[in-house]
Each structure stands twice: as C-alpha cells, then as structure tokens.
Design a protein around this nucleic acid. Structure first.
Length: 781
DNA sequence: CAGGGCACCT
DNA sequence: AGGTGCC
C-alpha cells in the first residue's frame, strides 16, 4: 500500500508507526508530527490516510486530492461529514463558491495598556498593569518582561514586579471608543470587518486582493510582508501564493494605518480562513504579522498544545471532549465523527472536527453596531435592597447615557445578577427581561436621559424582585443591566436633529441585513464597492445610502457611529483622511520601502522560541533589531537624555495613579528601562527587544557574532536530533526545565515549545543555507 | 476562574 | 432564560 511505501522515511518514524498501531491514542499525534517533519507536503497525505484507516470504511472513498482540497481550502464539510449530516448521496461536493479567501486577523497588542499609554505617554516607559477589581487584565510589555501576565491577581503581579504601575480599567469607555475607531478604520477600506472582543478584528479582503491582482498582473517583485509561517525564504514562495502575498501587503498597510492614525500597534495574521488567520496572527507577538501558507496548515494545527487552544473549544467543550478520551488536536482529528455527533449533535460535531483540521468556512460577518449595550459591576457582597437600588441606578445612568449617544432606541431591558454560592460560585447567572415602554425608550434617545433613568429604575427593581426574595437574605456578587433589541427609528428631534437624522437615514435597513444570511454572497457582490465610493467622501450622512444595499455597515454604531459622524462634521480634516484611506489600499502604489516591516519579511528559524531571543545579550538583540520596524509615535514624553518626564502624569490623570510612591517607582523604573547607551531615537515599545526578529537580510551579512554563552533552545550538550526522538511529553518537560533555569522569563508559556518546536527544528535544520549563519547560534555548538 | 463586555445557539 | 464562547 502506498501508505507503507511512503513511510520509508527513517527508522524513527517506523518505530513510531509501531507505536501508532499498538497505542493509537498515545502515539498517533507524535507519529504524525514526525512524519510531517520529514517531508512537509507529501506526508500530509499520509497523515490523512492514516486517519482514514482509523475510521469506518464508509469514510474511505475519497482520494487524496479530495482530501487535500478539503483540508486546504475552506470547503464547508468534509465528505464524510456531509454524508453523515445530509444523507448518503452527495455527489462529490458542491465546489465552494469562495475557493480562495484571503482573511486577515488583527490583534492589537495589550490593548487596554496601549490605550492608557496613549492617554499618558509616561506610562510607556514603566511596567504598567490595567486593573479591574483585583485582577490585572492586561499589562504592557515592560511589565511582561518582569513576569506579569494577563489575568494575574494584583497580589501576584506586585510580587513579581513591585514597581508595577496600576491603572484602573473598569470603565471601558476609552477602550471601547478606541476599539471602534480601529474597526471603523478597517471598515473604511473594506466593509467585511468582524469584531472579536475589543481588540481583534477579522477582515475578508478577498475582493480587494483580486482587484489588486487584476490591476497589477505583472506580479513583479511579488513578496511577502512580514513573516511567513515556517518559511525562511519568503520571497521565493510568493509567486506560488500571490493572493496571500498581496494580503500580507494589505495587512501591513492596514497595520501602518492603524499606527499612524490611531497610534496603536498590533499583530496580523493572513490566511485562508478565520481560524487559521487567528491562529497564525499570534505566532510573532508584539507588533508583527505572519502569513500562513496552505502547505503549512498542518504545522500550525499540530503545534497547538491542546484542544483548548483551538478557538471555539472552550472549557466545557474541552471537558466533554476529554471525557471521550480526546486531549490533543490530533486526537480529535482521528476521532470518528459519528461518535462525535452522538455527543454534540450534527453541526457542532462537524464544526469541531473541522476546526481540528484547520477547516473553517464561517464567513467574516460584519459586526456593525453592537446588538446590545450593557453595563455591569461585580463586588464581594451585596445583600441589601437599598444597595441594589443604588447600584442599579448608577449602572443605568451610565448605560442610558451610552445608549443616548448611540442614538438607537432599546426595546428590551434585562437585569442580570450573580448570586454567591460556595459550590457554584463561578457560574450561575440569572436574568429577567422585559420590554421597554415606548415612552421610556423615547426619553433615552431624546435629551431627557435623566427622566429615562428614573423610569427605568423601578422597571429594573421589578425584575430584581422576580429573582430575589428581598424578605429573606441574599448575597449578590454581580449586577448587570442591558439594553437590547436596539431599534434605529429614533424619534424626530429638533435639537440634535443632525445626529438623529443621521442615524435615522442610514441605519434603518441595517439590522435586517446584518442578520439575514448575507454571508459570503454579499462579500462577492459588494466586492466592487469595497474600496471606494460607498464612503462619505462628501457631505452629509445621506451618502450612507450608497452603501446601503450591500453593506450593512455600521458607521453609525454606538461609538463608531459617533466617530463616523464626527468625521463628517469636520470635512476639512476628514476629506483628506478618507481619501487616503480609500485610495491607498486600492492602488498597489505606496512605497513601502522603509519604515514598514522591511526586515520582518523574513524570520528566525521557527523553532527558535521568541522568548529565547530576548534572552540574548542586549547588544546582539539591538544589532539584530537594527532595521526593525520603528514605530515612532507622535508624542513621546521622553526627554533627550532618556529620562521620562513624569510630571504630567499627575496633571493628566491624577486619580489613576494609586499614590505618590508609585510615581517615584515609575521614575526609577523608567531610568532602569532606558539604558544610558541607548540612542534616544530608539522608540520601541519593548525595551527588552522582543519587538522584532532578525531577517534573512541580516543573517546573510554574517557580521553577527554570538557569544558562546548565549542562550540556546537546547543546552549545548544536547543533540537536537536525538532530542527530537524523545516522546513529546518528555521533550516538553525537559524544555520547561531548561527554560526555568534561564534568567527571568516566566511570561508566556502559552506558546509551548515542546513538540512543536522540535518539529520545526527538524525542518529548519535541513532547510535553507542562508539561515544557517544564524541558525547555528541556536543549535548546540 | 478571575473582569467587563459582547455574540450565538438552544 | 440560560449556556457557552471569545477577548
């Protein structure tokens, strides 16, 4: 059989094959990984052949090309699944309408921290944590270097980093505002933007890519911007994947736009579907981008350390999968679909399995304006009705104000509580909702918000008493108020007429479009209007109508709406901005010669843990980073001697700084974090040097010398070839042991070195010659 | 899990 | 109305 023939890869593989046969659950993933090590593309087929053999016979009909296409492309269903779900028939499969999508995923770096650092630039130079209650929800990279991580308790964080400066982040207003500015900026290029949380956006730029492709058929120096996952020679491969290559250029331009217009840095992933774009966007962490080529899909999937790492698999799902004996992604790939259906039902089962294969046909659904607005607060204990009432009043007051700015009229109100419970503390929220009387709703959109609050409070209390018997004792830990079922038809009003009319005119058809199945069809239909005309290049909000047909745009969302409106209000500034926004992305022009990630085009050998890189001596890092992406923000509080001016911290936001001691700490930290020999012009966000990696161009110059003592992934006396033969869990243990011996580094263990790392090591070792210069410094001497 | 939002499915 | 997922 072809299978055995192709497995003539080496003794190690054969051993693992034995393991697979006898202990499929334990060793299958290992085998697959190692097979892929030897020969990337071809053995992917072997992998799937093995899958098939492991499964029931009816699933074995497809030939390899079928498999490959279902794997590489965004084909909705694997053949077997389609058969299971929709009946036995199904002649082959309906070929996908969107054969090759180009999907971007943007992920802003430590978003809340960035926003605060923009609001107060002095915070750039100090370890900064954003605090919500007793939790550090995120922190800047200065703090991360000192071991602070996301979602770490304040106590632990202070322990790790005594100089940590904390900023309260419970009020999300500024974050939300900035978040919508980002989304809006992206939407101004292409309407297919889907938000995920406040700091992530998906974007379907397929049409934009096709347009560019048509405009510049002479694929001249086609190359990739930024990293290419698991590839060194990015330029060579570009011609094989012109769309993804173009996508990487667009991503770079968009990132640059976000940076220049909003002052924010972030990562981007470029791939053929949302899942992969998201997975790949995080491979090079701060302020970089990575493209995933189809032939490397199995690599990035195989690198996931557990099922939990698959977006879409949460805790509950992971537990249920684990109950089925599935822990790794490959386990899920191998698991018979039928059994999966039994547990999760048809659609969910197929979706899970597809995710494990890197298949994701879900469209980029334009988010538009939020469908609900809510405000909540959590606390240790709330047990009196009076406190509840006051809290509700407070929450409602804020929420109504936000709702008012949004302009839409809520038709449903919901109150949610969380009760304290020793056993089930972390869960169990209850809620009651009721329609909002129209006369109250109108008061929200009109200017009399205070009245609205007064009327809503009793309504909320009524709902509260439906859940809580206030005659007895109760113990709440959270209260949430929420407006939903948001209606666009605002009452015609004189005073703010301009705003309301803007909303009224533009938004009425939106909601229906948002939820009607406008998926990929719309994307293809609306394609032509993507880059251009649908915009507000000229005067009033009427121009929205131009886009009304295909684009469920939300330029009129709560905060987004306001921003969009403001832009129109100041036509002088706006006209220029919008023109740039639209023209730049649509023409291939734009000299991206310097300043953009010129050097990031290439990457370190993928088995080199980024974490390791920053352990190198600083001089080395600096040299490696020399052509780096310089993100110079408009304003820096750094004086020429490298000392941070903290005086205006107090001026700008006195209440955010906990105490004066912190300010002193900040000064210390700032001086420490800015070595005297560092050129003042350098303005990188991460003084430790995690921001960029050496490119091939740097390596080729061969002028880099690493001291013997520079940290390696493996200790010098360990042969990587031998190491890679070890069982993955053993590898992981060893690696983590070695890692812990190194200086600081406690940060992201999320990107696990383990097997993934060694997989790539194998590939890298046999790969490009140019890379060897730098490569050897990461290998045992 | 935490925290403050959001969305989707049932 | 609740559950689950995402950040």
């Amino acid at each position: 059989m072809a299978l055995l023939h192709r497995l003539e890869l080496g003794p190690t593989t054969k051993e693992y094959f034995h393991c697979l046969v006898h202990f499929p659950h334990r060793y299958s993933s290992t085998l697959i990984s190692h097979i892929e090590n030897y020969n990337n593309k071809k053995t992917t087929h072997i992998t799937f052949t093995l899958f098939q053999m492991d499964k029931s016979e009816d699933e074995m009909e497809e030939d390899e090309t079928e498999w490959k296409s279902s794997f590489v492309d965004s084909v909705p269903l694997s053949p077997a699944a389609a058969a299971a779900a929709s009946g036995p028939n199904l002649n082959k499969k309906s070929v996908p309408t969107s054969a090759h999508r180009v999907i971007l995923h943007f992920d802003l770096d430590c978003f809340y921290a960035q926003v605060e650092m923009i609001r107060n630039p002095a915070l750039r130079e100090v370890p900064l944590g954003i605090q919500q209650k007793y939790i550090i929800v995120t922190c800047n990279y200065v703090a991360r270097e000192q071991g602070v991580t996301k979602l770490m308790s304040v106590t632990d964080a202070k322990e790790k980093c005594p100089q940590l400066v904390l900023v309260k982040g419970e009020d999300l207003t500024h974050y939300r505002d900035m978040s919508y500015k980002v989304t809006e900026l992206l939407v101004s290029y292409c309407p297919l933007v889907e938000r995920l949380g406040f700091d992530e956006n998906f974007m379907d730029i397929t049409k934009m890519v096709e347009t560019r492709l048509a405009e510049t058929p002479e694929s001249k120096n086609l190359s990739f911007k930024g990293h290419v996952y698991n590839h060194f020679s990015a330029a060579v491969k570009a011609s094989d994947h012109p769309r993804l290559a173009l996508g990487s250029h667009i991503a770079a331009e968009l990132r640059e736009a976000i940076h220049s217009k909003l002052g924010l840095t972030g990562c981007a992933g470029i791939a053929t579907n949302k899942l992969l774009a998201k997975l790949v966007s995080g491979t090079f962490k701060p302020n970089q981008q990575t493209t995933l080529l189809p032939e490397n899909i199995s690599d990035i999937i195989g690198c996931l350390s557990g099922l939990r790492k698959v977006p879409g698999v949460g805790h509950q799902t992971a537990k249920r999968l684990q109950a089925l004996g599935l822990v790794s992604v490959k386990d899920l790939q191998l698991f018979p679909l039928n059994d999966l259906v039994r547990e999760f039902g048809g659609p969910s089962a197929q979706r899970l399995k597809n995710l494990a294969l890197g298949v994701d046909d879900s469209p980029v659904t334009p988010s538009g304006a939020p469908q609900s607005l809510s405000d909540e607060d959590s606390f240790k204990k709330m047990s009196s009705t009076k406190d509840v009432l006051e809290k509700i009043q407070e929450l409602l007051s804020n929420l109504v104000e936000r709702m008012h700015k949004d302009g839409r009229q809520p038709q449903t109100f919901r109150l949610t509580i969380r009760r304290y419970s020793a056993t089930n503390k972390w869960f169990s929220r209850e809620s009651r909702q009721s329609p909002i009387p129209t006369h109250i709703g109108q008061k929200i959109t009109s200017d009399s918000s205070d009245d609205a609050v007064l009327q809503l409070v009793p309504l909320a209390m009524k709902l509260f008493h439906k859940m809580v018997d206030s005659s007895g004792s109760f113990h709440l830990t959270l209260i949430n108020v929420c407006f939903s079922n948001l209606q666009t038809r605002g009452a015609a009003v004189s005073g703010k007429g301009s705003i309301t009319s803007f909303f009224t005119h533009s938004t009425s058809p939106r909601k229906t479009q948002l939820f009607s199945t406008q998926s990929q069809d719309d994307s293809s239909q609306s394609g032509d209007s993507h880059c251009m005309d649908h915009q507000f290049s000229t005067h009033s909000g009427i121009s929205q109508h131009a886009s009304q047909k295909t684009v469920p745009t939300k330029t009129h969302s709560s905060d987004a709406a306001l921003h969009g409106f403001k832009r129109k209000q100041s036509p002088v500034v706006v006209a220029v901005e919008d023109r740039q926004l639209q023209e730049v992305p649509c023409s291939t022009a734009r000299s991206d010669s310097d300043e953009t990630d010129n050097m990031v085009t290439h990457q370190l050998p993928p088995y080199v843990d980024p974490e390791v890189f920053k352990l190198l001596p600083e001089e080395i890092q600096k040299e490696l980073l020399s052509p780096a992406y310089t993100n110079s923000l408009p304003s820096t509080s750094m004086s020429s001697d490298g000392v941070v001016d903290v005086s205006h911290i107090k001026n700008k936001s006195p209440q955010t700084i906990k105490d004066s001691q912190n300010i002193l700490d900040m000064k210390e930290a700032a001086n420490k974090s800015v070595p005297s020999d560092r050129p003042t012009t350098v303005n990188d966000q991460s003084p430790g040097g995690t921001s960029a990696f050496p490119g091939e161009n740097v390596m080729e110059e061969g002028r880099l010398s690493f001291p013997e003592s520079s940290d390696c992934v493996l200790p010098g006396n360990v042969d990587p070839e031998v190491f890679s033969e070890l069982p993955p869990d053993v590898q992981r243990e060893l690696l983590s042991e070695w890692k812990q011996q190194k200086p600081v580094l406690k940060t992201a263990s999320s990107r696990k070195p383990g097997r993934c790392l060694m997989n790539k090591d194998r590939k890298a070792a046999g790969k490009g010659s140019q890379a060897n210069n730098l490569l050897k410094y990461f290998k045992p001497s």
